[in-house]
Design a protein around this nucleic acid. Sequence first.
DNA 1: GCATAAACGAGACGGTACGTCGTGTCTTTGA
DNA 2: TCAAAGACACGACGTACCGTCTCGTTTATGC
Lengths: 191, 191, 191, 191
Amino acid sequence: MTGGRRRSETSRLAILDAARDLLLEGGYEQLTIDAIAGRAGVGKQTIYRWWGSKGAVVADAALEGGLAQPLTPLPDTGDIETDLRRWLRAWTEHLTTAQGTGLILALTAATADDHTVADVLFERFTQPHEQLLRDRLERARGAGQLASDAPVPTIASVLIGSLLYRVLTRQAPPTVDDADLVVRLVLGGAG
Amino acid sequence: MTGGRRRSETSRLAILDAARDLLLEGGYEQLTIDAIAGRAGVGKQTIYRWWGSKGAVVADAALEGGLAQPLTPLPDTGDIETDLRRWLRAWTEHLTTAQGTGLILALTAATADDHTVADVLFERFTQPHEQLLRDRLERARGAGQLASDAPVPTIASVLIGSLLYRVLTRQAPPTVDDADLVVRLVLGGAG
Amino acid sequence: MTGGRRRSETSRLAILDAARDLLLEGGYEQLTIDAIAGRAGVGKQTIYRWWGSKGAVVADAALEGGLAQPLTPLPDTGDIETDLRRWLRAWTEHLTTAQGTGLILALTAATADDHTVADVLFERFTQPHEQLLRDRLERARGAGQLASDAPVPTIASVLIGSLLYRVLTRQAPPTVDDADLVVRLVLGGAG
Amino acid sequence: MTGGRRRSETSRLAILDAARDLLLEGGYEQLTIDAIAGRAGVGKQTIYRWWGSKGAVVADAALEGGLAQPLTPLPDTGDIETDLRRWLRAWTEHLTTAQGTGLILALTAATADDHTVADVLFERFTQPHEQLLRDRLERARGAGQLASDAPVPTIASVLIGSLLYRVLTRQAPPTVDDADLVVRLVLGGAG
DNA sequence: GCATAAACGAGACGGTACGTCGTGTCTTTGA
DNA sequence: TCAAAGACACGACGTACCGTCTCGTTTATGC
């Protein structure tokens, strides 16, 4: 057996685009496979052939659909405080947009809902972003800007966690001032 | 006219108990209104009469069903580091249990799903716990254990956020060592 | 045993009126106990205390609510054909009104639905009307206007059945010409 | 695009069979869509996709499920009285069975309940049977066995109406003697 | 009169069935 | 051989009524 039609890249992109658009329009709860298929002009089977569940599509849409911040290394101006500020402010602003908020809420819902999605997202979204953060922190430690025993993973998780908390409480959107305070706190301590 | 049968406290409790048990057995995704009603020996309408959504029931079950940590003030041994450690360790351990993990995942899913639930939970769950934490921190500042310009709200949100992040990534359960590192970082800074 | 409040005639009438009105507005299917109670300004229990089922209320409403033709003996002009015509035309015209059609459809639905209702209605509605018809026919036989072996019960049931058929097929409302033809047929035969 | 799975004949028949069986077991009131779906091993949506209401399913079950008398022309022995007797006796006996009684009660309830069902049943059940009866009567008239001005439609409706009346009053099942009397009356008159 | 007690309105209760929606699978036709 | 279209079995949804069960409140005796 040789032949057979190849996977349609057009359909793949149409599905991810549809998922992203629907996600931003109505949130994770409104998002259905039927709606994705309809919007994308695609059969449901085409979705199930390549993704195992709604969460998997959402995860892919988040990763490829341009919803998230691009996965680029943190700037290195030589000053860790400046760079962390810049990073945290950028995320803070991103999460202030409807797009950013919707993304995180959807991913969080998907994560809380489905263990396999949690794993995929961690591996391909959270982990890489955290890694970039750690890389910059490690470089700072090498440069003597952080204490030699500074707990880099802890710092990274605290920075991300503070963002998460702001979004999930949904009370007030995080501000750049909050971001600066967090950086200040993490670097300087409260004592 | 004032008549009409009064709300059944028995049913109310049976519903919250059933919701809690099913949550711990199968997670938020397995939790259905039908199952709650069946387990509680109650008509579905009795649930819908008093709660607007699954999330609202879960929120109530968390608050009244003994799922969450009791809302007691942080101890005050006089040493803020000891007390924060104790608090964060207690939560960390609580979140290590199936009960605690299930609770937070369910509440997070409910939060991400439904804005009204998010508000209720913030007001009656997150906010009060955060307030207790802030109270202790303020007292520490008053006692000179924290810098006079220490950003108490930021400290509180960072402590909670770090917990949240650990649970949601679902990779490894948070450990007491992590807790200690976070407290250390927040009090002493990384610089 | 001493006192005790007496049955409220006001409520009884309000219930029957409400049932009748709702029946004419929406048919038997739309008719619910809740709606009757609401419209009558009455508790549901007051209905269940005195009637056993929806059908029983409907039967009573039909009998007392002025929905049906009054139960008066057929006129006796001395000519049986004239009198039967008059009787059948009156019913035909009654069944042409929305009220009459609604009544029969509702009673038929109730009859087909519920055996006990069928019995009550037969005993207090169908039977008495049929009896009046038979009485007149017997008198006609006595007067020699019908053959001495004329099957009076059969004639009666055929006259009523023809009405029923017209209403139930719901195609065209019965006309007075139809009525006359039926009387003619029954008295004169087709042979 | 023309694709798409075709309607499942297996499911269609299973639904009609289940409806028929449940009808005979418990009557129209006991018949529920859930029960039909369960018995037929079919999703409820498959029922709602093709029928609009319970009545519509019952109507179809009656028409296709072998509940009704087969739609065959009346015999023509040359003697109209014999043939009408045979026809009316056959129906009378059919309506004496649990199956026949259940059928007519169900169809009547459906008819009284739902106008659209009434139309379908009239067109596909009542009308055709009445037409066969009329055909035979017309032939008799042509053969001089009926008066040349005999009101054939009236005769047909009277014959059917008498049957209907017997079944709906539910008092005593109709007998073959009743049938003979009706035929005699219609052909010979009571005068 | 004043206790007794039944009927009243209101409306929550445990249930059953409703008709709809979404899931993930299966089948058909067309490219 | 893949893809669209869409029917399928399944199961949860949220609603409507059912008939029963408290709740106070009202109204009639009869002690």
